[in-house]
Design a binder for these strands. Structure first.
Length: 273
DNA sequence: ATGACTGAGCATCTCAGA
């Protein structure tokens, strides 16, 4: 299925696409759960965060049988991101451009497929490491804004999705779950989120559901899930032409109720032709 | 206390997650 998008003077074919993002909190612990979800939902692309392993330990065989190839940016014990795709993809960045070369944290992967750029990201939490940890989060967000600005300036159809570790507004945080100075709701974190929107990116879920809770994370502690004390911190941001083609966007809450789940659930978006 | 976590690693505690 392919549609037509006018790009400059030429018409290029742009297929429909279903893209999901999921912080799985260890891909080795969650391989069966992820494979089951892929079988039921059949996304074209699944972005994974917090895989918590290096590439040789990634359970690629669990997904290969379902037709998914893997691109992995791994790290031992912490962080790590990956892309699962049913179609050919080309990896163009394995680190976020603009960060110091010495930065070794595996938090960013950017791929191209079918005329589309897809960035999978795991933004620093910012609550560990004191003032330096918070400064790192904000520097990371500044670099992300610069990368988004470059792609938008080039009129590139693009999508940034993953675990942003930011609750954009009060509606995205159940009352009392986080302290006012928590890095996820800090005014400077939220200001940097808004700056991404001001660049021209569209928050896919909020475009279709402007108000109300749409949580993507529930802590393992204190009965957060049964009491629905969640956060919305996993997001998909779309360039203007993709936003105009947006058909559906939402979190798959049911995944949080499964046996030994991740503390995050998948967020899926569908882009029409 | 209505609730009392999870994963990784040179591990039997520590760090990070959010």
């Amino acid at each position: 299925m392919g549609g037509r998008l006018r790009a400059g003077a030429e018409l290029i074919s742009v297929p429909s696409v279903k893209i999901a993002t999921w912080n799985v909190n260890s891909v080795r612990q969650r391989a069966t759960l992820v494979a089951d979800w892929l079988r039921r939902n059949e996304p074209d692309i699944l972005l994974l965060q917090e895989i918590k392993c290096e590439a040789p330990a990634f359970p690629a065989e669990a997904f290969a049988g379902l037709g998914y190839r893997c691109e992995i940016v791994g790290q031992k014990a912490y962080n790590g991101v990956a892309v699962l795709a049913r179609r050919p993809i080309e990896t163009v960045h394995r680190t976020l451009p603009g960060l110091p070369p010495a930065d070794a944290q595996a938090r960013y992967i950017e791929i191209e497929t079918a005329g589309l750029t897809v960035a999978g990201l795991y933004l620093p939490n910012g609550n560990s490491g004191g003032a330096a940890g918070l400064a790192y989060k904000w520097a990371w967000m500044d670099a992300l804004a610069a990368r988004a600005a470059a792609l938008l300036e080039a009129d590139r159809p693009c999508l940034f999705a993953g675990d942003f570790n930011v609750c954009p507004t009060a509606a995205d945080c159940a009352p009392g779950v986080l302290a006012a100075d928590d890095a996820l709701v800090h005014p400077e974190s939220r200001a940097r989120w808004r700056r991404l929107l001001w660049l021209g990116l569209t928050d896919a879920v909020r475009a279709l559901q402007p108000a109300g809770a749409a949580f993507t994370f529930w802590d393992y502690q204190a009965g957060a899930w049964p009491r629905d004390r969640g956060l919305r911190i996993d997001h998909a941001l779309l360039s203007p032409e993709l936003a105009e083609r947006l058909l559906a966007a939402g979190a798959d809450r049911a995944e949080r109720g499964r046996e030994q789940p991740s503390d995050h659930v998948p967020v899926t978006i569908e882009i029409g032709p």
